[in-house]
């Protein structure tokens, strides 16, 4: 059996394992530990160069209070949700439709269409900065939630379609054929047969998209100016000074910003793993 249970190995191996495991765990988590510790440090500690030692005083509460006091981080958080959630729903909706279309119907050029969606993922979106800005201006959605949401949907749909198309193509086609033989309309097939079956994929995509869109800095920076519309990624940068940065406040703010994606991941974890392996082996 592989991997062999650690209890069955020699004593030396067991000891090595028991030592190596916590050590590698700490090494891997070091950046996380550093951020958490920094969020509890005073600025004076940082100015003395006490980055890794025990803080002279723990000021978690003061730092978090300062983050909430010195920036409108509550508004930024809310804005992130306002931008992220409709973007996910929009991207998932469009990509399910497109994915089903590409997977279920045989028409000319469908491979080319799929290739187009895949190729779209390889275009570095920074080069689209100026045309996209101009387009939002012409559409009258510059400096609004809608502008960012539209472009997040547009840029995420490509990857989502690729993902959904492969997923739907893996489903037993007999289900669709059976339903068609019964005279079920194509829309109802999609809603009552396909969507329930791809639920794990949708959940996995939702988690991925949540982190992608939540963490995106570029599009809000280009498309949003007003302070009251900024998502958390953009809002956090106001804690970074032109010359001087309060790293303790930045760390505290980053922890706050990182919480929703982490919570999202834990909430959807079960779907996520199921989604990754579903269809990996044909039984």
């Amino acid at each position: 059996m592989f991997p062999r249970p650690i209890q069955e190995t020699t004593r030396a191996r067991q000891v090595m394992y028991k030592v190596a495991l916590p050590v590698s765990l700490v090494v891997w988590l070091l950046p996380m530990i550093a951020i958490i510790a920094t969020a509890g440090r005073s600025l004076s500690d940082l100015n003395y160069g006490n980055y890794w030692g025990i803080p002279t005083e723990w000021v978690f509460f003061e730092n978090f209070a300062a983050v909430f006091g010195s920036s409108s981080i509550g508004v930024y958080l809310l804005n992130s949700f306002i931008i992220t959630i409709p973007s996910i729903i929009g991207a998932l909706f469009l990509s399910t439709l497109a994915g089903a279309g590409l997977a279920l119907y045989r028409f000319r050029g469908r491979f080319f269409l799929l290739a187009l969606f895949i190729a779209g993922n390889f275009v570095p979106f920074q080069i689209l900065m100026i045309p996209v800005r101009q387009l939002t201006l012409d559409l009258g959605v510059y400096d609004s939630y809608l502008g960012v949401i539209l472009f997040q949907i547009a840029f995420q749909t490509g990857f989502c379609t690729f993902f959904m198309r492969n997923f739907i193509a893996e489903l037993p086609f007999e289900l669709v054929e059976a339903a068609r033989a019964e005279g079920v309309s194509e829309w109802k097939i999609l809603i009552h047969i396909i969507v329930p079956l791809v639920r794990p994929a949708l959940a996995a995509l939702a988690v991925l998209q949540f982190t992608f869109i939540w963490n995106d800095f570029f599009w809000p920076l280009i498309l949003i100016q007003s302070d009251e519309l900024r998502p958390i990624t953009l809002g956090l940068t106001t804690l970074k000074g032109q010359f001087i940065s309060s790293f303790n406040l930045l760390a505290a703010g980053s922890l706050i910003a990182a919480l929703p994606p982490v919570m999202m991941f834990f909430a959807m974890q079960k779907h996520f793993i199921a989604g990754l392996t579903l269809g990996a082996s044909k039984g």
Partner: peptide, 9 residues
Amino acid sequence: ANTSDPAQK
């Protein structure tokens, strides 16, 4: 503005 130092702010 780019005046994001604590004193500048």
